[in-house]
Simulated assay, not measured.
Amino acid sequence: METTSGLREHGAANAYLRECGSRRVLEAIANKWTCLLVDALRDGPVRFGVLRRRIDGITQKSLTQTLRNMERDGMVIRTVYPTIPPRVEYELSALGYSVVTLMEGIKSWSEKHVPEIMAARELYDVRAAEEPRPVQVN
């Protein structure tokens, strides 16, 4: 078994290490909007307004930021067409397509297990409300 220092010496990626680039990649793809955008873009180029209507609840600011981050990470290609007004489309790059199956699996798992998760949350909240709270002394 390798230690974190051993992994660091050999140049291996290890998301458990604070400074490892793989942790930043994990943070980028673990974002809920990224997950939904990957799925929304999987069938080809889409305009901003279509994405905004397709992903209920996303704000214009969140959509803009997430698309910019995905473009910066090489997962999305932004194409501006020289028309008046300008037409902009977003599509997955090859790198973006490489994560489609993963994101589809996460989305499907989430949709399948909604009842179990919601029931567990309700049970937890009931138990938490019934437990005595410790008194904090300042």
Rank of each mutant, 00 (worst) to 15 (best):
G105I: 10
R68E: 10
Q65I: 00
A30M: 14
V46S: 04
E19T: 04
N69V: 04
R53G: 13
E9M: 14
P115G: 12
R54N: 03
L17Y: 05
M103V: 04
Q136K: 03
V99I: 15
S5T: 00
E9Q: 13
M75W: 11
R42Y: 00
T83N: 09
R133P: 01
K61I: 04
E111L: 11
E130I: 14
T83D: 15
S93F: 06
E2I: 02
R121V: 11
R53A: 09
R18F: 10
Y16F: 15
I77F: 15
Y90H: 03
R8S: 08
Q136R: 02
N138W: 08
D43C: 05
Y97A: 08
R78P: 01
H113A: 01
L95T: 09
V135H: 13
G49R: 08
Y81F: 14
E104L: 03
I84H: 14
Y81P: 03
P45M: 04
S22A: 10
Y81Q: 12
L63Y: 10
V76G: 01
V135M: 13
I106P: 11
D56I: 13
Q136H: 09
T101D: 14
R47I: 12
I84D: 15
K107D: 00
L123Y: 02
T3H: 11
L123I: 00
R72C: 00
L26V: 06
R47N: 05
E122A: 09
D73Q: 07
A94H: 08
I84S: 12
D125M: 12
Y16I: 09
S98Y: 06
V80N: 06
Y124V: 15
L26P: 04
G57Q: 08
D56P: 08
I106L: 12
V88A: 01
K107W: 10
R53Y: 02
K112S: 04
R23F: 01
R8T: 06
R127C: 10
V46M: 01
L41Q: 03
T59L: 07
D73I: 10
V135Y: 08
V114H: 13
G11D: 11
I106Q: 01
R127T: 04
R53T: 11
E71P: 03
K107A: 01
L63C: 09
P134W: 06
H113I: 02
V100Y: 07
D39S: 14
L63M: 05
D56V: 13
V38I: 12
V25Q: 04
M118E: 12
H113N: 15
E9C: 07
V25L: 12
P115Q: 05
L37Q: 03
R53K: 14
G21D: 02
A129I: 15
R47C: 14
E9P: 00
G105P: 04
A119T: 08
M118T: 14
L36G: 01
V100C: 11
S62M: 06
A28P: 11
T66A: 03
A28S: 08
A129R: 14
